[in-house]
Structures are given as C-alpha cells and as structure tokens.
Design a protein around this nucleic acid. Structure first.
Lengths: 358, 358
DNA sequence: AATTATTCTGTGTGCGTACACAAAGGTAAT
DNA sequence: ATTACCTTTGTGTACGCACACAGAATAATT
C-alpha cells in the first residue's frame, strides 16, 4: 500500500534532457516544431531509458474518437457468426474508454450485390479501421485495394485473401485443419474404407474459401495415408430437409459400407441428427466443426465424435484489438495469426464452453 | 473521428442530483459523511442511469499501491511452473498502470519447512492479495485460515484445497482429466489389456493433489469401461536415470503385453525418450500432460500420442487478474474456474504453441 | 539597428476520478 | 445570544498525458 510504484514519465524525461515536457511530447509524437538540438537531447535520453507511456492517461487526454466497422454475414443467433460478433462486441466494450466505437454492418452471404453495397457504403463513411469477413475472393479483393489506397487498415477474420494486405488475419489454417479432421477420423477407425464428405449447396455462390480448403486438406491427407479409401461427396441444401434426408438415406442406409463422415461447415447437426434418428451413431464415425449449440447437443448424444473448434470469439475480439493496437497504442501487430485447432470430444467439451477464452 | 463518444460522468450525476461531485463520490465509495437527504438524492439518480466509472481515470487518480505475492514452487526454466509464472508476470505488466506490484516467492517443493517459511514471511509482510500454488493440504490449510482471519484474499492455481475459502481457483478438474486420459488411450487402442501407469517418487513427500486425483480418475474410468484391463504402477525417481531405465525395461521390454502408458505429471519425456531409444513408439500408445519443450519434441517424434494441456499461463494470468478484479475494479469474480482440458496431438500442437492464450 | 517574420519552447488547461481541505450549516452547551 | 463543536458540503488539486497558445529566441528583411 505504499512506495514501490514508479515509472518514468514525460516530466522525468524532460528534466533529464533539460527541456520542457511539451518538447518531449513533440518528439515522442513526431509532431515537428522541434530544433535539431532539442530533438537530439531528448532522443538521447529516450535511448537510455525505457519509456512506457501510460496508455490510460494518454487515452484520457486524447480527444480523438475512433470508428471501426465490422463487416460480417447476416446470421441467426445460434450461428457461428454470432460467436465472432460476440468477440467483436466484447472488444468494443473493453475499448470504450479509449473512445472506440464499433459498428457491425451485415451482408447477405448469398447475395454478392448486398456485400458490395455494404462495402461501398462502409468505405464511403471513412471508418478508421475495418474488420472484414471476406466474401467472394475477386470482389473482396477489389475493395481491399480501395482500402489500401485510402489507407484504411483492415483485418480479416475467418478466412483471408492471400493477395490483399491486411493489417492482420485471425483464423484457422484451413488446409491443415482438414488434415486434422482426416487424422481424427483415422484414429477412430484405422481401417475405414468409405467416407461420406458433406457440404452445403450455397445457392448461386461459390463455396467459401475456408471450407473448400478444409476439404482439400482432408482429401490430400486421406490420399496420402489411405489411398484405398473412397470419399463420397454429398451436397446438402440449406433448409431443404426433405431432400437432405433422401441424400443421407442414400449414402448411409442403402450403402452399408460407409463407416465415417465429415462435414466442413458448421452445421454438423444436420447430419448428426439424421444419424441419431436412424440409430447409426455407433456405426458411423462423424467429425464436424464449430460449437453450435445443436452440434454440442449432438456430441453429447454421441452422434458426433469430434468437433474441431476455432475460437470464433477470440477471432472477433483480437481482430478489433489488432486495429486499436495499431491505431491507438502504436504497437506492432502480427499479420498471420492462426488460431488453434481445438479438439473437442464429449469428455472435454463442457470445460471448453464454460471457460471464457480470453 | 468525432462526436459519438459519451458516457455519464460523476459530474453529470452531481448535476442531476443537485449536489456536488464530491458528494456523489462519497456515495459511490460509501465513504460516509453524507446526509441522508443527499444520499437519497444521489442514489435515486444512480438507480435511474447506468453509471460505469472510467477505471483508467480512477486508477490515475488513485494513490493506492497494491502488492500481490505469488507463492509457487521453485523450478527450472523449462518447467511447468515457469509457464504459470509467465502468466503471472504478464498480468503484472498489464496491471502496472494500476499501481499493481507482483512479487514471486518460491518454495522448495520437497521441503515442507521451506514452504512454511515462505508462507509465514509472506503473510507477515501483509500483502494485499496472494496467489498460491498449494503444497501439502493440511499445512497449506493452516495458512489459508490465517489469511482468512487477516482478510487477505487469496487465489489457488493448479490445485485447490476444498476446505479453504479462496477468492478463486484456476486449474483443471483433475479427476475428469484422468478420465479423459483413459478415454484417449481407449480411442488409440480399444482392445488394450495392459497399461503402465507412471508416477514420480517425491522424496519424503505425499504426491500432489492434482496428480493423485488424475490417477484416481483414470483408474475409475478404466475400471468402468474396461474392467479386464490391467494397470501396472511404476514409480520413477527424479534424476535417477539409471534406476528409471531399469524400471522401464522391466515393464516395456520384459513384458511384451503392455501396449499403453500414461503419466500424470508433466515429465512425460522421461518415458517417451525411453520409448524412442528402444524403438517402442509404434507398439506403445502413450499419453502425458503439459507442453514442456521436451514433451513437445517427443510428440513430434511420435513417442507421445496425446498431451493434455491446461493453459498454465492462463491460470497464472487470470489468477492475478482475479485479485485485481476483486480489489481494484470491484468486479465479482467466479470462484471455481476449471480451465479447459486441451487435447494436443502432432497435427495441432504447433498452432496451440504459437497462439498466445489470452 | 529596428522591425517583421519565422522557428521554437514553455506553460497552462482539460480528460474523469480520488481525496484533502476549508467553508458552511446545524446542534448543543454556556 | 454567543460560543464551541460536529456534521455535511463544495471546491481545488493531483494523477500522466495531449494539445493549444502565448511568449521567447532566432533569423530574415528593411
């Protein structure tokens, strides 16, 4: 409750350099109007000591407001994107005392025009920073180019576009995460010969980056480790339960030799609930992604064996924080941030859910 | 870069209530010297609006220094405890602008007297808060009682003592983590019949809470799921490589029917390196705990199949933050915080290591 | 040399809060 | 009614920093 606390402050530096606090401040912020002589005196002191500004005092004194915009898909409350959004909103709260405001602009994932409209309006509003969940590669790229020109820093979450120049990326290494899915499936059933690989048919939309890369990773892994294994690709349709049920009956009921299944998008429950309904849980090893409530429920019913999670909340949270690290705290930020591929099974999923990541 | 930012401040409340800022402050901090009339006026306003103090301004203005002490085992730089310490030190840095100082007091894990000395000196120094890695239960308990009396808040990390009244606990649910080890071993080898269970002989010391509970969890899980399976308990001795090698030869080389092994303390590499040396990696499924550098190396050599991790850095970090949440930010803190049981395999371990947890 | 123009530098104020202190109000005792 | 005493209240200053502004020092012009 006493003494101890001590840190070098601007005033101390001023004293050491034999100038005033104002001059030190001008040097620190490179704001000009400093003679060479004074600048050198200050810089000499700065080199000697390790000045760490009090960011809280700094934020308090600053009059700048920051406006960040997060552009993500429209979604339902139980969706994967909701978790990303939660992370974003949590960051917004944590940073509110630093005069940071975050707006969420949502686009329709099935409608490129909607994405374009959102992006154009967003860029037109001249935000200080942008968090972006990429849509179609070429389209997205044209907007990131515009932001490069306007010097608006942007970060990617979930997936990224190699050609762009984001401040940072937070997301999984999709290819390797597909390999992991393969590895887990082989652990469950080393002798597996036929696997059903599910994906969703996105009306008029090329499959997301993320998902096709996972698929590629999985395929190449299986090809290498178990060439003999046959992969059946089944395309499901969002909301068309009838058709999906037919497709799944075809593969699971008619063809009794399929012993495993994978899905690379977050709606594993669509398949898992089918497995439950027809009592196939034991025969079919099934692996999915992301901790949607319904997925978790299926896992607890043992219709999903493994879920691979990717800390979506952390992605959103750290994405926003990367922007403020760069713009407000002037900290260097890591560009490529691959989030861990968390392996969840019945036995450890509860602790994962209960413990706030970050 | 403009408007937007606005939050209710003490001055606003003062205006609304028709009193001065000083009076509002006195009400907010329950510091007395306020007439019933004024208090009511202020409280009425407070109920209506949602006042969130600016903790940074508050920290800036506060003249209180906080001294936290972390009592943990002495250790080497590559040890498990080093990671806990790193989390502690990171928290100390993050909180330095809040006038928080953290001291690390280390005790000799093999010497109860050393623990007692550290604890007594520590308590005698009247810290504002304590982070504690428990030693022998009964001894530790006597000190937590003393801290209860002195109203010094303390948090447990790693393991806990049920009878004590900590502000918080951060650590794994050891019992279930033992079950998880069992589950993973069965996934690797569903037909396993003989398993070697390793532990370290701690000279003159009862095995740590943590470890014996994992062992119990594992045993009960195996008993339930695979009654026929035989468990061989092998006790190794820290630093006595010769003796250890003999013991391991006995179990792995003479007895060819052992197909799996587990160790519940962090030095899995002692066993794994033996498996590498005698080329037993493929025959023996082996599961260990914690991401020591040497363990990770063994995993990459495929001599360890699974490592169960417990975010030791997060434990240390959140432990210290729990103290400051309680003492400085007056936030309620969760008592029981079970960290996730992270499942690491060759395929996903790198991402886990690269990505800073929190 | 005197004046104006141009750097440059120090001081002062505010950010939102905590806390010390003095002033004001009230009550009880003389 | 006066004094003394306690309670309650408002004001002022400091925390460390950013930034505006005035004033000092220097350079350029007449």
């Amino acid at each position: 409750m006493n003494k101890l606390y001590s840190k070098i402050k601007i005033k101390d530096i001023a004293e050491m350099a034999g100038v005033s606090a104002g001059t030190v401040d001008r040097v620190l912020h490179d704001r000009g109007d400093v003679s060479k002589k004074s600048r050198e005196k200050v810089e000499k002191v700065l080199k000697k000591i390790n000045y760490i500004p009090n960011i809280y005092a700094s934020a308090l004194a600053s009059k700048k407001d920051f406006r960040f915009v997060a552009v993500i898909p429209k979604h339902n409350p139980e969706d994967y994107w909701e978790m990303i959004q939660n992370g974003i909103l949590r960051a917004a709260e944590e940073l509110s005392d630093f005069r940071v405001n975050v707006e969420i602009h949502a686009y329709d994932i099935f409608n490129i025009a909607s994405f374009c409209k959102v992006m154009e309006d967003m860029i037109g509003s001249h935000p200080d920073g942008v968090l972006l969940a990429p849509s179609l590669k070429s389209v997205t790229f044209s907007y990131t180019c515009k932001m490069d020109e306007l010097k608006i820093p942007y970060v990617f979450v979930d997936s990224r576009i190699e050609e762009a120049h984001p401040l940072a990326y937070f997301g999984q290494n999709s290819h390797l995460s597909g390999c992991l899915a393969g590895k887990l499936l082989l652990t469950l059933n080393p002798d597996i010969q036929e696997i059903a690989v599910f994906s969703f048919y996105n009306v008029g939309q090329i499959p997301a980056n993320q998902i096709s890369q996972r698929m590629a990773g999985f395929s190449s892994f299986m090809l290498e480790k178990k060439e003999s294994c046959r992969l059946h690709r089944i395309t499901l349709e969002l909301g068309n339960q009838e058709k999906n049920e037919v497709a799944m009956s075809e593969i699971f009921l008619k063809n009794k030799s399929v012993e495993g299944a994978v899905i690379f998008s977050s709606r594993a429950y669509v398949v898992a609930e089918f497995l439950e309904k027809y009592n196939l849980k034991k025969q079919i090893s099934f692996i999915g992604y992301d901790l949607l409530e319904r997925n978790v429920k299926c896992m607890k019913n043992d219709s999903i064996d493994y879920l691979i999670a990717q800390r979506p909340d952390v992605q959103g949270n750290r994405g926003i924080k990367a922007l403020s690290d760069h713009l407000i705290f002037k900290k260097p930020v890591n560009v490529l941030n691959y989030v861990p591929m968390d392996i969840l099974i019945h036995k450890n999923i509860d602790f994962y859910l209960d413990f706030p990541n970050c």
